[in-house]
Design a protein around this nucleic acid. Structure first.
Lengths: 204, 204
DNA sequence: GTCTATAACTTGATAGAC
DNA sequence: GTCTATCAAGTTATAGAC
């Protein structure tokens, strides 16, 4: 069945997202997918390669949409300064929008997990270009922000996004409804625009 | 040896922090600690109980210091409004300060991991009181912020802190040096103070 | 308290029939 | 492509000698 491969991918995606990679066994995956254990190794060779396949299947569209929005923001700015909110929206709106679609909902949680706990190698492999482009764009939107402070704020920004993708706010707090791109962008934009602490200004 | 128990705790703390709970086997722990496998079960009964012991040993001082700083901030405010920066510093300064101490450095990474990927039960068990106290304090510092927006921003805040504790900024970005409490507080305070997006104001 | 030995089970991976 | 059967290794946990 051609369906077998998709069933494995779907089930692995869900279990990896909900329980993490190490805590998920192949036998659990094949039990819930209703397929044979050997089929996993036939289609994907190894557990690690299965995770890579799960990531590859859905990540490319997300990052492509991000870069397209960033291109649009840069085009709109012409030679002038970039608008910070537009840059942040390009980073955040695609994953938040796509997670409304059933096909992408669980993947976005997995993406949050990888962002939150991923090692450096995985990070660079999947998000290298995105990180570079967005660092440049934020620097162009905030030319007066000291470099070190920019890097830390980018780090905080990744933490916010990872946590938001991995967890619904309702899990720990009593928030209702869905988080909006506007909320997250407003929060992060204000953070990026905050006056740099005095102990860092000397490095500017 | 009375040292055996500490050696197990120290090594488990480090490996859980660096590689995660599921990805760390007891055999790896006892190999690096130079102790016998049975000693783990003698002293801690099970792997899960070992993790609980690792958490309990160091978490209480962190949360105690946080609540003491929050008490001080509330006392300083008298009946007036709380200062947002003081509230955030009470949440953030204790873990960032303690991670400079060798005895607490790796534990703070583990705490970041638990904050980032912990399930709801673990969360409430270890941070329930802290979350409640700080939610109330931020609400008192920002009485005009709509409740829903406050909860989401608290959620973002946890994500920032978790990511900062779990990862050095140098891992993904090229930031040098250590992150400061001032940097993180300035970023978060500005985010909390941002104007609430219009699509939420109607719920105020 | 610490050890050896081992139970009882799960893991990722593969060989080979169909 | 899919199956059964199995391997080799690793897993948590325990019993019992010292």
């Amino acid at each position: 069945m051609i369906e077998t491969k998709s069933r494995i991918l779907d089930t692995a995606e869900r279990l990896f997202a909900e329980r993490g990679f190490s805590a998920t066994s192949l036998r659990r995956i094949i039990a819930e997918a209703g397929v044979n254990l050997a089929a996993v190794h036939y289609h994907f060779r190894s557990k690690q390669a299965l995770l890579d396949a799960v990531m590859l299947r859905r990540l490319e569209p997300v990052n492509r949409e991000r870069l397209a929005m960033l291109d649009a923001a840069e085009a709109a700015a012409g030679g002038g300064p970039l608008e910070l909110e537009a840059v942040l929206a390009a980073l955040i709106a695609p994953p938040l929008r796509l997670r409304q679609e059933p096909a992408y909902a669980t993947f976005m949680k997995l993406m949050g997990r990888v962002l939150a706990e991923g090692d450096l190698g995985t990070m660079r492999k999947h998000f290298g270009i995105v990180v570079e482009r967005f660092l440049g764009a934020v620097a162009r939107a905030l030319p007066d922000l000291p470099r070190e402070e920019l890097l830390w704020r980018a780090h905080f920004c990744v933490g916010c996004l990872a946590h938001t993708l991995l967890h619904k706010a309702t899990e720990m707090f009593a928030a209702t409804g869905e988080v909006t791109t506007e909320s997250l962008v407003a929060f992060l934009a204000a953070g990026f625009r905050a006056a740099a602490p005095v102990n860092l200004r000397k490095h500017a």
